[in-house]
């Protein structure tokens, strides 16, 4: 059984279908990019994965568990904006990833100290240790998103969901963030879903690229039908398919050919 199972998921708001008949299997550790036109339900699909919304039909399960009814620690998220808490300093934002999980919301004594030490280690890893005492509003957009990713990863989710995480960043910062995310992924082996508007980004980072689009279109009532996964690309190995097919099917390897002696013989 696959790690994440999406089975025949439909979502509609007030009778308007947004997405329909989405079925998907994702293995643990895969990076799935989701692309598509604006308003095609990419973000809706991400919210469904997050359990922020519940589908009108169908189920989504992680590792064979129950269908989630609300967001939880299993699924981490980074949004385009508003992903960090503006009233907490950078370090407190990281500590919150552990502290929020307690009954009171605060850590005390030794737990607080060790959490702060871990937070400082994480800040050093994501290159924000020099601004640990500052508030997020004084950071640049790229730094805020690094903090948001660090915060999400501190909670050790099983799936990380990224909703256009780099959409508001300038191109240079965006490339840095790609490298940052690639490194983090190599370290954590996490399953990631990323919604993106940027095709290049989707193929560069993703193992798989899913395209959401409407397969049915009613010219009298464009909102009647929802979008679904219309294409799926294998984005590994620079987007070139079948690079490892011989590893999977060794029988396809060319047999050692007999020496072409006959050709050398004179007629």
């Amino acid at each position: 059984m696959s790690f994440i199972q999406v089975r025949d998921v439909w979502q509609a708001y007030g009778g308007r279908s947004i997405i329909e008949r989405v079925t998907l299997d994702v293995s643990e550790g895969e990076f799935v990019s989701i692309v598509g036109a604006s308003g095609c339900g990419k973000s809706t699909f991400l919210r469904l994965l997050l359990a922020d919304e519940r589908p009108v039909r169908g189920t989504i399960t992680v590792d064979g568990g129950d269908v989630a009814v609300e967001p939880g620690r299993e699924r981490g998220v980074v949004f385009q904006r508003y992903s960090v808490f503006p009233h907490l300093t950078v370090r407190e934002n990281i500590v919150a990833a552990e502290g929020f999980n307690t009954a009171s919301g605060w850590l005390f004594g030794a737990a607080k100290r060790t959490s702060r030490e871990r937070a400082d280690a994480i800040l050093a890893r994501i290159g924000l240790n020099h601004v640990a005492e500052q508030y997020p509003a004084s950071l640049s957009g790229g730094m805020q998103q690094r903090l948001a990713i660090g915060q999400a990863l501190t909670a050790k989710p099983r799936v990380l969901l990224l909703d256009e995480p780099f959409g508001a960043l300038d191109p240079g910062t965006r490339v840095q963030m790609h490298d940052f995310l690639t490194e983090l992924r190599a370290e954590t082996k996490m399953t990631v879903f990323m919604v993106s508007h940027d095709l290049e980004e989707a193929f560069k980072l993703g193992d798989r690229v899913l395209v959401f689009d409407k397969p049915r279109w009613d010219p009298q009532d464009p909102g009647l039908y929802g979008a679904t996964i219309t294409y799926e690309f294998d984005a590994r190995d620079g987007g070139m398919p079948y690079q490892h097919i011989l590893d999977r099917y060794p029988s396809l390897k060319p047999q050692a050919e007999p020496a072409p002696e006959r050709l050398l013989e004179p007629a």
Binding site: L50, D52, E70, P71, G72, R73, R75, G76, V77, F79, Y82, S83, V84, F85, A96, A97, F100, N101, G105, Q151, A152, A155, P157
Partner: peptide, 8 residues
């Protein structure tokens, strides 16, 4: 939502 994903 973010707070909920952190277990709050």
């Amino acid at each position: 939502v973010k707070a909920q994903t952190l277990g709050a």
